[in-house]
Design a protein around this nucleic acid. Sequence first.
DNA 1: TTTCCGATTGGCT
DNA 2: GCCAATCGGAAAC
Length: 194
Amino acid sequence: MEIAGFNIIKSCFFKRPTLIVARDLIDKYLITNREEIICGGRIVEVEAYTGIDDKASHASVGITKRNKIMYDCPGYIYVYMIYGIHYCFNVVTEKKNIPGAVLIRAIEPELGIKAMKTRRKRNNLLELTSGPAKLTQALSIDISDNNEKLSEKDICIMDDGRKSRKISCGSRIGITKSRHLNYRFYVKGNKYVS
DNA sequence: TTTCCGATTGGCT
DNA sequence: GCCAATCGGAAAC
């Protein structure tokens, strides 16, 4: 997809330490092109998940069928089902064989708002993409995207050059293990942060 | 094969 | 604020 003023982020961006990539993903755009409809918006909240020392990470138990993609090439997509009903979207980071991923927790809705409202069955902008499973529904991301590579025709991350004034970090949401790690990054004061 | 439980959300009290 | 929904991953048996 071609969007004026936006550049595609290439996979070398993700081939870096997970915490660095996580912080740098703030202000980038997550965009999908589904059924000819382009949807997406500015990333305002993310969480980093690393290897065996991070007990909240799916990779903390060593390689399994599910988390194998976290050990694979940077720029691949890790989608998993949570609570039997929702999907969460991650981008794989680090060099091959080093586990890591960044969970996209919230974006600021901007492109394809009409379609996102339909998919979410909500009219309120605040309810479209202000949570990890809300944004997958709004962007029509599901388990069929798991293990795929970010691609220009399907799902991609783009940059418009903007950089936020205030990025905060803190403990991750909804986890019980490794609470002490400040692996959550977000735009301070942004109303779409979950 | 069985059991436990989760990187969430939305509806109801 | 509380809790059900609903599936599959991972480990125990």
